[in-house]
Amino acid sequence: MVKIGKKEKNGELYKAILLLKNEEECYNFFQDLCTVSELRSMEQRFEVATLLHEGLIYNDILERTGASSATISRVNRSLSYGAGGYDVIFERRNKK
């Protein structure tokens, strides 16, 4: 059993994401699934993770992304102590 937070996850969403074949399908699916605000938040967090991974400091990230220091800190914590999801993406992007 895998949990997200304190609840058991429903794997159907994650299985559905794996069925997407290209960027356009992914964009359309997430546009249907999420609000504009949710999408912007996820995009911002991923940008922050990318910049932290590249070694930028908090102030530079704040200036470039407009993310709050709390968001930057939360993303940094995920990079350091999370499930390793960001690492998988960064590793695979580097191989391309």
Rank of each mutant, 00 (worst) to 15 (best):
Y81Q: 10
I4Y: 13
L19I: 06
T71M: 05
D87P: 02
V2C: 02
E23F: 05
D87V: 05
S73V: 00
Q31G: 00
E25S: 06
K21I: 06
N10R: 10
E23I: 07
G55D: 11
G11E: 14
I57T: 06
K7L: 10
F46Y: 12
D60P: 02
L79R: 04
I4H: 12
D87G: 15
A83E: 13
S68F: 03
D87S: 14
L52S: 11
L20W: 13
Q44C: 11
K95V: 04
D32M: 14
E24R: 11
A67I: 00
K7R: 15
N76W: 10
D87I: 08
V48Y: 00
Y58D: 05
S68K: 02
E54T: 02
I4Q: 10
F46L: 12
I17Q: 05
V88G: 04
D87F: 12
N10T: 07
F90D: 01
F46C: 05
I4L: 15
E25T: 06
A67V: 00
E47S: 07
R92F: 10
F46I: 03
Y86I: 08
G5A: 05
A70G: 01
D60Q: 14
K7F: 09
E38L: 09
K9S: 15
L13Q: 04
R74G: 02
D32F: 15
L56H: 14
